[in-house]
Design a protein around this nucleic acid. Structure first.
Length: 815
RNA sequence: GGGUGAGUGGCGGAAUUGGUAUACGCGACGGACUUAAAAUCCGUUGCCGCAAGGCUUGAGGGUUCGAGUCCCUCCUUGCCCACCA
């Protein structure tokens, strides 16, 4: 008998699938399309990790199931290959990112192939291919044309030792990642931004129709942070200046007892009195030196601030109120200034107590609250003519009155900031802009795209805040497309999130040289039907990709405005000890090693799905791996024994058991696949296998025809999960063609009808017995039968008040 | 501090959505095969009890004929965000 040897069969079928191109998707197929996609992986030097395995396997199982159900399935793969790790590696080793990227993607591709994924490899590309980033640059120009790209000065983290800007993740505990005792500072640089804030409303509204986890939708809503309120003007006393504040609670205006400006607010210097000047300057300087971490910590500690010596006039009653500065107000949110209402805002309350500022209550509540500050709704008091109104009514009237006097307006505010895409880095798509002393920032003509990244041999930072590209003299020095005069290229490159904001569209038409994609092919394949990946990209990537999609829609390039119909996040796979997997702890699980050890890809795929529901975090288990391998081996052995058994076509008693086990499994596995309940689907297959062993033990392989149907079905149901063994068994059972394009089996309810059923007997809801009785028996018959049960009868001493019967399930006597 | 999941055997986890709690796998124990071991196969395995039987889904309360599932209070824990005016 042949032994189950995954090493031999997996290699064989992977080659066969590749040769026969069965996973290559046709762009013009009458079958309904299904586009299944995993998150764009970054091809790191370490290779595929277990998280990728879980991610890709989930997508693949659905893709395979849909394909067998008769869909035209597209499951592509590509590489998000620009980025910091490649550049950092180049800085350390001098090996160019072009070389390491090639090695890493080759490695990733080989490792993916070893997992037996049903990917259409003919569509593969990397974001670092100039055929691809040509169109990323093209989209930059599209955004520029549509007024959605602009330049602005913006502070960046800076390391004085490296003489370079740092990304957020290179700032560790407020210091440089390479110089752990060098505090980072901020350096102001001119940067490119995409105006994602123009789409803030659309991005909120679009979430409603999406089949995404509610948690992710909520995170996006919070990130965009839409809040309705009012912008109010406070005149500065004795100065011809006004301070604009944003508030969501204009109803509490009578309770505003001071104003707070962010330390970096532009009016600070101007309004500060001579007497306070020294203190204010000291505070501003100290605040500027605080890095983000300290600011976060400050939230937990005492609030600090300083009085400017200036006063503002409350627009509603002309009260003079002091103007303070404090770092609990951020320049980046709203107008960088607030009206402080200590009676009804916790932070203001804390601050007012700290500095003995008056507190005026203006909203009374009937519900008791502790701590002295109430931020809920209530009835207005101490508010002049608004007294007695509800806070909601007062909110509207006060704003309406101030609008009339032109010192206020209704305003929607967003937490969302525009998207900074400039990176002072080498390893990214160059921004297609030429700076001309006469014409300013001029777009590179579209016919000149791609603007290729020049090959360099030194990737050290320049030391002046510019990208290493600034040293590529021949590349930088160019002519202005408008006036023809000497000009310099933009040396910043684009954020990697730009590359991953449209790649899902390129898979629809990866070889197009005339356009990023054809409208027809995009219309056929998109939107993505199922998008699977980790929750760590919940906000940024998904928000950026949605914004680009909306821009493309507005530009008439596509006929939909949401890219991902359904989104699913896989849970984290933890180490066997329940800890997070990390290289430094040495508790990582290497997928390739598991395959090579002899367990094979099929067992690996099964265990990552079987451990827990796909969206749950769960620890890895080597014993579990051995368990699923044992299961595959049992299926294999049983099929081999069937093949080698004597030919016996006669009907036997085994038929009924085989048929009900088979149809039951088809029903259960199909239903579980519909809702992505992979762990229970695999459990059902194991149970099916166990049932077949029982039949074999009792009857042998009598009735080979029915046995063949059972084993064939087993292979088919197994196919999405363990594609190699399924294909091999299919061939061994002399079935023609690939199992992966054979139609998915259908169950027949007739085989699942039971002649006798077991009914639970309860007394007062407690289980007291069980009876077996002919199906469809009358309730009265069941009742009589139940009363004969001795244990039940013991509990039925008193009068039966009520009987509840759940058909075919249970009978409950209430006494 | 805010948001959001999750607490079920020795372990990972099931439970048709209010109807027989603990499917499936692991581990453990017993048996068969073997000179022996591994592998394989066959049993047993929530807890207490010799048994009949009783008890059991983080804790406590409630609704219901009936609650792992619904409601209230609390405890533990994972993840995400964090002075958002």
């Amino acid at each position: 008998m042949k032994r189950y040897d995954p090493r031999a069969i997996e290699k064989k079928w992977q080659k066969e699938w590749s040769d026969s191109k069965i996973y290559e998707a046709l762009d013009n197929d009458a079958k309904p399309k299904y586009y299944a996609l995993s998150f764009f992986p970054y091809p790191s030097g370490i290779g595929l990790h277990i998280g990728h395995t879980r991610n890709f396997t989930i997508t693949d199982v659905v893709a395979r199931y849909k394909r067998m159900q008769g869909h035209n399935v597209l499951q592509p793969m590509g590489w998000d290959s620009f980025g910091l790790p490649g550049e950092n590696y180049a800085i350390k080793t001098g090996i160019s990112p072009q070389i390491t990227t090639k090695q890493n993607t080759d490695n990733f591709r080989e490792q993916c192939k070893k997992l037996g994924l049903s990917i259409d490899w003919s569509r593969e590309f990397g974001s670092t291919d100039s055929d691809y980033y040509k169109w990323t640059q093209w989209f930059f120009l599209l955004l520029l044309e549509r007024g959605l790209a602009y330049q602005q000065e913006s502070p960046q983290w800076w390391c004085d030792v490296c003489k370079t800007v740092l990304a957020n993740e290179q700032v560790v505990n407020g210091c440089c990642w390479r110089h752990e005792d060098t505090p980072v500072s901020k350096k102001v640089l001119k940067q490119w931004f995409f105006k994602i804030t123009d789409y803030a409303d659309d991005l909120v509204a679009g979430l409603d129709g999406l089949d995404w986890p509610e948690g992710i939708k909520l995170m996006q809503r919070n990130w965009i942070g839409k809040s309705k309120g009012a912008k109010l003007s406070f005149a500065v006393a004795e100065k011809d200046r006004t301070i604009e504040v944003f508030t969501t609670r204009p109803d509490t205006l009578f309770g505003a007892t001071y104003i707070v400006l962010a330390p970096t607010h532009p009016l600070v210097a101007e309004i500060t009195s001579e007497a306070q000047k020294k203190d204010v300057e000291k505070y501003v300087e100290k605040a500027a030196r605080k890095n983000e971490i300290e600011l976060q910590e400050a939230a937990a500690k005492k609030k600090t601030g300083v009085f400017t010596g200036a006063y503002a006039l409350n627009p509603i009653n002309n009260e003079r109120i002091p103007i303070w500065i404090a770092d609990y107000v951020l320049m980046g949110y709203g107008t960088g200034a607030i009206m402080a209402v200590p009676a009804h805002d916790e932070r203001d309350f804390e601050f007012a107590n700290q500095y003995s500022i008056p507190i005026i209550e203006v909203v009374s509540s009937t519900t008791p609250h502790h701590g002295g500050c109430y931020s809920g709704e209530g009835i207005m008091i101490n508010s002049g003519k608004y007294d007695g109104l509800s806070s909601a009514e007062a909110r509207e009237q006060i704003v309406a009155d101030l609008v009339k006097k032109k010192i206020g307006e209704e305003q929607v505010n967003y937490k969302l900031r525009d998207w900074l895409i400039s990176r002072q880095r080498y390893w990214g798509a160059p921004i297609p802009i030429i700076h001309c002393p006469i014409d300013g920032a001029v777009a590179v003509p579209k016919k000149d795209l791609p603007l290729e990244l020049p090959v360099m041999d030194d990737f050290q930072p320049s030391g002046d805040g510019q990208s290493p590209l600034a040293r590529a003299k021949d590349w930088v020095e160019t002519k202005c497309p408008t006036c023809g005069g000497p000009a310099r290229r933009e040396t910043d490159t684009m954020d990697g999130f730009a590359c991953s904001s449209w790649y899902f569209l390129r898979f629809a038409d990866p070889y197009n040289t005339e356009a990023p994609f054809s409208k027809e092919k995009a219309a056929y394949w998109l939107p993505v039907d199922l998008y699977v990946g980790g929750a760590e990209h919940a906000v940024m990537h998904l928000l950026y990709a949605r914004m680009w999609t909306k821009v493309m829609h507005d530009a008439g390039l596509i006929n939909f405005d949401e890219p991902f119909k359904a989104l699913r996040n896989q849970g984290m796979l933890l180490a066997a000890d329940g800890q997070k997997i990390s290289k430094s702890k040495g508790n990582d699980i290497k997928p390739e090693e598991i395959i090579e050890q002899g367990y094979g890809a099929d067992a690996l795929r099964l265990i990552v799905l079987f451990l827990a529901p796909f969206d749950m975090s769960t620890p890895w288990s080597n014993e579990g791996l051995a368990g699923v391998f044992r299961f595959l081996q049992r299926v294999w052995t049983l099929t081999q024994r069937y093949i080698e058994s004597e030919n016996n076509e006669t009907n036997s008693e085994s038929e009924g058991a085989l048929m009900s086990a088979t149809h039951g499994a088809i029903k259960k596995v199909s239903r579980d696949l519909e809702v992505m309940s992979f762990n229970t689907a695999i459990a059902a297959l194991m149970q099916f296998c166990n049932e077949l062993y029982v039949v074999e033990k009792e009857q042998g392989f009598k009735d080979k025809k029915t046995w063949k149907f059972a084993l064939k079905s087993m292979a088919q149901l197994l196919a999405p999960f363990a594609p190699h063994i399924a294909e091999e068994l299919w061939a061994e059972l002399a079935e023609k063609g690939s199992i992966h394009i054979a139609p998915w089996p259908m169950h027949n309810e007739a085989y699942l009808v039971k002649h006798t059923i077991k009914i639970a007997i309860q007394v007062n809801g407690k289980l007291r017995g069980e009876i077996e009785i002919a199906a469809d028996s009358e309730q009265s018959v069941i009742e009589e039968e139940a009363k004969l049960n001795k244990n039940v009868a013991d509990y039925l001493s008193s009068d039966i008040r009520k009987v509840i019967y759940v058909k075919d399930k249970l009978l409950n006597f209430v006494v």
